[in-house]
């Protein structure tokens, strides 16, 4: 699903690489936590998967494609198979819940009939039925994140990237979001989630990959957030 082969990423005008010789394989259907302090390379890892950045050295494979050989005009096709969720939700404030989810389908040219059918379905999956006509500012943070997840999942992507999805939410709400991501994972979507939330990681007991200074320092199946130091 994702394969990093000795990947190094050095941003221009920086002396220390954001990722250095990182190798990692994530299998289909896995649920992986990416942990580590700020600046450890988590976001760079996710940006490389989305081909928002290219590695300075090494190869990145995503969904069976070598991203270094992927031409620019094929990037959209890759991203249609990857759902993305962020800490700040990234919803359009002037659109309703329904329109926000529908937007993701409209801009890739899906027909209206298809949109009318699948958007209510996915809103039910994330538990937002009955709130189709609300606007983001009328929703709680947890509900807004559910809209974002619905938008990421409406295309039934093979891979879901979540960059600190619970970072802006209180613990109770976070649990609900995690249950939802777990459900999506059980529906067959690989989930890669970066987080700072030790409690969540410890509760879920899934694979944990820890990054520090751009290196993979720990890779544990059924891991916890950190060792007691």
């Amino acid at each position: 699903m994702i394969l990093f082969d000795t990947v190094t990423k050095l941003y221009p005008n920086q002396t220390r690489p954001a990722l250095e010789d990182a190798s990692l394989e994530i299998e289909k259907g896995e649920f992986v936590f990416l942990v580590g302090p700020s600046g450890s390379g988590k976001s760079t890892f996710l940006r490389l998967v989305l081909r928002e950045e290219r590695p300075t050295a090494g190869n990145v494979w995503v969904l069976g494609k070598d991203l270094s050989r992927l031409s620019n005009w094929k990037i959209p096709t890759l991203r249609r198979e990857i759902g993305t969720v962020f800490q700040d939700f990234r919803l359009l404030p002037n659109k309703t819940v329904f329109e926000n989810v529908a937007f993701a389908l409209e801009v890739i040219g899906k027909p209206k009939a298809h949109i009318k059918k699948v958007v209510p379905e996915v809103l039910e999956v994330v538990g937002l039925e009955g709130k189709e006509e609300r606007r983001p500012d009328e929703l709680s943070g947890g509900e807004q994140q559910r809209v974002a997840i619905a938008r990421a999942f409406v295309n039934r992507p093979k891979l879901l990237i979540a960059d600190e999805p619970t970072g802006n939410l209180d613990p109770g709400t976070s649990v609900g979001i995690m249950k939802l991501l777990d459900r999506i994972n059980r529906l067959g979507t690989t989930v890669v989630m970066s987080t700072h939330d030790a409690q969540i990681v410890d509760q879920m007991r899934r694979r944990v990959v820890e990054l520090e200074h751009g290196h993979v320092v720990r890779d544990q199946s059924r891991g916890v957030y950190g060792y007691a130091r």
């Binding site: 005009w73 959209p76 890759l78 991203r79 990234r90 937007f103 890739i108």
Partner: peptide, 8 residues
């Protein structure tokens, strides 16, 4: 958002 969801 368009970029992220794979709009051409």
């Amino acid at each position: 958002i368009m970029r992220l969801v794979g709009a051409s």
